[in-house]
Design a protein around this nucleic acid. Structure first.
Length: 256
DNA sequence: ATGTCGGGACCTTCCCGA
């Protein structure tokens, strides 16, 4: 049995103790983090090493930043999308125990009429082209992270209010479906899930208390892995911590 | 409710991004 997870921590400086606590309760084989918001020289390699994990990291000042934490050292590490020049640190990929693990912090996009949305569309197109190559090179691929896309209306607490809004536009959802068409499966939807399952709740408006959220953090598995998936769950517990991230971790369990 | 966070700088208060 193997376990993989993704978590947007919204600043690893603030959240490191929670990440270490979480790892001791959930000793996963690999965990990808998003929004570390740390330059590479400030990355807490020592603390993560003391917890018994290897780590690869790729960050920048103030914004973005990703990491791949794993029991076994990741090899063939790639930072950002090959073939897409990007100022922003958003992707880290590595091979762990024969599985290609790709962690992504997809652009937020801000608003459908913004420059940031155009960037998001270009980023998604480039990601897809690169993934075609990754899928040719690796049979077992796990693509996970903060996609900043709610794929369907059932992934949105108020689909009417959010219709056409960022995370829910037809263009973003089309990009998500194009990833699925590469041969990926949304592991969360392989199983019956509680209704109103979200992975993100706005800090504002008492959103978590009212369970007003979106499912925008995902774990996609390649065709060869689909039959090995035995569970995929959102762990809401860390969102109840005293200084929580606005995102909850998502956990994948594989047979064998 | 444009309601909260986190980081950073023109730094104890504002701005941006989410």
């Amino acid at each position: 049995m193997k376990k993989f997870a993704t978590w947007n921590v919204n600043s690893l400086s603030i959240r490191l103790p929670q990440v270490l606590d979480w790892l001791s309760a959930h000793p996963v084989d690999a965990l990808v983090l998003q929004e570390t918001k740390l330059t590479d020289d400030k990355f807490p390699t020592l603390e993560i090493g003391e917890a018994g994990y290897q780590v690869q990291w790729f960050g920048q000042k103030t914004y973005n930043g990703v990491a791949l934490i794993s029991r076994e050292k990741a090899t063939d590490v790639v930072k950002n999308i090959t073939g897409f020049a990007d100022e922003q640190a958003r992707v880290i990929a590595g091979t762990v125990d024969g599985l290609r693990v790709i962690g992504g912090y997809f652009p937020n996009g801000q608003a459908p009429d913004s420059d940031k949305f155009t960037y998001k569309m270009n980023w998604l197109t480039s990601l897809r082209h690169w993934l075609i190559q990754e899928l040719k090179a690796h049979e077992n691929v796990v693509l996970m992270g903060d996609f900043n896309i709610a794929p369907e209306d059932r992934d949105v607490y108020d689909p009417v209010a959010w219709a056409g809004q960022i995370h829910c536009t037809p263009e973003e959802r089309e990009h998500f479906q194009q990833l699925i068409q590469l041969g990926f499966t949304d592991a969360f939807r392989l199983f019956d899930q509680p209704p109103k399952s979200w992975s993100w709740w706005d800090y504002r408006n008492l959103a978590f208390r009212k369970n007003q959220g979106l499912r925008i953090d995902h774990i996609l598995v390649s065709e060869a892995l689909k039959g090995r998936v035995t569970a995929c769950e959102i762990d809401k517990l860390p969102r109840k911590n005293e200084r929580p991230s606005d995102h909850a971790p998502v956990i994948l369990t594989l047979d064998g």
